[in-house]
């Protein structure tokens, strides 16, 4: 063991958390789904709630409430060519900014940030703005996502089909 290795219970810094959020966004925009699936802990959830302020996601209707199996199915849907709305998968570019660490300790790091995403498919360009709440944890293999909650600012309005991963 070298002395430069970070202890597993060391709090995650803003710099580390930002870099990790950008990595996640870049993997999605570049359709590197296997690498994306590997970023998550076994108990993690990917959530796109409807109601602003919702916290009891399990007992509430969401747009997405994915465990690892559902995330893998979502990726299959994007890559199998069987889904007419995901053939081709829309191209996306997302910008993450306004990062703020809400809490960071031995248990994990709550990072909140803004996401502006533009999608393009079949001559149509659309944008979605969202607040994203991440919970990152440090593991022996590096940082992992324990929870990602995407709060679209227009979540209670009528949306268009979202044929990709927010």
């Amino acid at each position: 063991m070298t002395t430069t290795m970070t202890r597993i219970d060391a709090a995650i810094s803003l710099e580390e958390a930002m870099q990790f959020a950008w990595l996640e966004g870049d993997l999605l925009d570049s359709a590197d789904y296997d690498a994306w699936l590997a970023l998550w802990t076994p108990t993690s959830r990917y959530v796109v709630p409807i109601e602003p302020g919702a916290t009891d996601f399990e007992n509430t209707l969401n747009y997405a409430y994915d465990d690892g199996m559902m995330r893998a199915k979502r990726v299959d849907r994007l890559t199998s060519g069987q889904s007419v709305s995901a053939s081709p998968v829309p191209r996306t570019v997302r910008l993450l900014s306004r990062f703020r660490v809400l809490r960071s300790d031995a248990e994990g790091c709550e990072l909140r940030c803004a996401q502006l995403l533009t999608e393009f498919r079949r001559e149509r360009e659309r944008s979605y703005a969202a607040d994203i709440e991440f919970l990152f944890v440090r593991t022996a293999d590096g940082l992992r996502i324990e929870r990602k909650v995407i709060r679209l600012i227009n979540a209670t309005a009528a949306l268009g089909g979202i044929g990709y991963i927010l």
Binding site: I50, T60, L61, Y63, T156, A157, A158, L159, G160, G161
Partner: peptide, 8 residues
């Protein structure tokens, strides 16, 4: 128990 709303 809530709803999904979308337009086409």
């Amino acid at each position: 128990q809530g709803e999904h709303k979308f337009r086409f």
